[in-house]
């Protein structure tokens, strides 16, 4: 379908964008790559009065190191995230999960910041940001503030971003192979390119053949991405034989939806099975 009519503006700086959002934020939608917003507009599920196209603001693309963190510009495309040597080295989980997002054409245009700010619990990257303990940096009229991923995802398609704020970068603590970290993103969907019915992002630090620390992010197990804290606790200290039992608690505290694709019970079962698989793969115990 043809999108509803809207006004369009293309700010040339973060300050310019924030100023526009401060004036019109309640009636505006931010457009980055457009791979989530355009379908919403076309299906007439969103009716912004104003579309603020931040896609060409300079300085919001690319990856850099800052001490123990990687800093990724919000406009960095999935395609660029996947190919980036720093991401592959220090945040391999993100590269692996980004490679499963949609299809190549969408990965060319879709952005990391866009998919986090869109906050679809069925999107792959929100759960990954949770597992990585990422910090999301928002620019607003009063300057910048950093929001931990755990506080960022508030509800279905809702984030801690205020109407006058723009997500500008994502800071990810390094979790490299050299420090014993392993990762895996296990996604279950009916057909290639489909959204995850459930996805499990596993980040595991190994020590002497055991799991010293596990962080599990769950895709599509509630109205927001979730951490499987009970499973994480159960996984601490276990060896290969203990993973299956620990993974049994992966669905604790989750509230998955029932929809035509899957019942809540089926999703809970998927979460347990996929957590086992994902953790074993991440720990190199598979």
């Amino acid at each position: 379908m043809i999108p509803p009519a809207f006004e369009y503006t293309r700010p040339t700086s973060v300050e310019d964008a924030v100023r526009t959002l401060a004036e019109r934020g309640e009636d505006a939608k931010v457009l980055a790559g457009g791979q989530s917003l355009l379908p919403l507009l076309r299906m007439r599920l969103a009716f912004p009065e104003l579309v603020v196209d931040v896609g060409r603001i300079p300085g919001l693309r690319g990856v850099r190191e800052e001490g123990d963190a990687l800093v990724i510009g919000a406009l960095t495309s999935h395609h660029d995230v996947i190919a980036d040597p720093l991401v592959r080295r220090h945040a391999g989980l993100l590269a692996a999960a980004a490679a499963t997002v949609a299809d190549p054409a969408i990965r060319h245009r879709g952005t990391l910041g866009g998919s986090l700010a869109h906050a679809d619990p069925g999107g792959d990257l929100p759960a990954v940001a949770l597992a990585l303990d990422a910090e999301l940096v928002a620019a607003g009229p009063g300057g910048r503030r950093s929001v931990p991923a755990r506080e960022f995802f508030v509800d279905f398609l809702q984030t801690a971003l205020r109407p006058d704020e723009l997500l500008v970068e994502v800071r990810i603590p390094k979790t490299g192979d050299h420090d014993g970290w392993g990762f895996h993103y296990e996604k279950y969907s009916r057909v290639a390119q489909a959204w995850a019915m459930v996805g499990v992002a596993a980040l595991v630090r190994r020590e002497d053949g055991h799991i010293a620390e596990a962080r599990i992010g769950l895709t599509n197990m509630g109205s927001t991405p979730l951490r499987a804290f009970a499973a994480e606790e159960a996984l601490a200290g276990v060896g290969p034989d203990g993973v299956a039992r620990a993974a049994q608690s992966a669905a604790e505290g989750t509230r998955p939806a029932s929809d035509p694709a899957a019942s809540a019970e089926y999703r809970a079962q998927l979460a347990r099975v996929l957590t086992r698989r994902s953790v074993l793969a991440a720990a190199g115990m598979g």
Partner: peptide, 10 residues
């Protein structure tokens, strides 16, 4: 790019 998912202005 999927040209149904890009605005002409983009």
């Amino acid at each position: 790019a999927k040209s149904c998912s890009v605005l002409a202005v983009q």
